[in-house]
Amino acid sequence: MKAQPDARLFQIGFQAALLTAGVLLRDFSLLPLQMALALAAAAATQACWLRALRLANVGYLSPLITGFGLSLLLRADTLWVHPLVAALAISGKFLIRVRGKHVFNPANFGIGVALLALPGTWVSPGQWGNDLGLAVWLIGLGALVARRASRDDAAFLFLATFLALTAARLWQLGHSPLRLWEILSHQALNGGLLLFAFFMISDPMSLPDRPLARRLHVVLVAVFAFAWQFFHYRPHGALWGLLCLAPLVPLWDFLLPGQRHNWRGNRSLHNNVAAQGKIPG
């Protein structure tokens, strides 16, 4: 069988295209330098940890994805925030591990730390506008068809659960079907939500291994996100949901063990290091 390219290459291409579109077509308050620093700091931190832990053949796709993810979602009014957060995110990946598997999605962890602890940081969930949202849906669906990838169910399961709950809530609030549809499509085209679904929660390295556990976990995150937004009226429900529920993942893996995901590019590493319980993402 012909080897498929690493799925993360596709993700990086997608993120880069979105960032370009965002910077060119949208009023992104992101400086190119912030992005460059985020990418450089992520790669440098990865290099340091690889050296310190003497890991070879791991590569730099993961820090690239984290760097792009942070650039896409995190905003700051200073230059030092992005590189610092990128370094923390990558370090978190190496340091916070349970049974060899990192607990937090690096970009999600970085954004959480930034919003909680660093001044002058924010996330702009509305900044993409609905037209770009539509484009993201098309590309996401296209990718699904093209890749037939099994683990991508997370993105769509999350979106389906979140939007179904939203529709139920809107119905319960007494909106007419037309208004319900208007509001629901407005929610469904929110760029922040879609970025989260396609780039963050779909990261297989920070989800439970067993498919059943993974689906349950994704549904939990969607319920959290929904409750946060519609009962507590706060933004960023999905980001907080993934972050707060991440500690459950090791528990899922303990209760319902499954086959550990491995990126195609890491195959040899998988074989060599898996036995030692050390699989870098």
Binding site: R75, A76, D77, L118, W122, P125, I183, S185, H186
Partner: peptide
């Protein structure tokens, strides 16, 4: 009415520029 289907929700950012 068509372009703002929902009430306006706000958030305070950390931006001070």
């Amino acid at each position: 009415p068509e372009t703002f289907p929902e009430d306006l929700m706000f958030q305070e950012t950390g931006d001070r520029q």
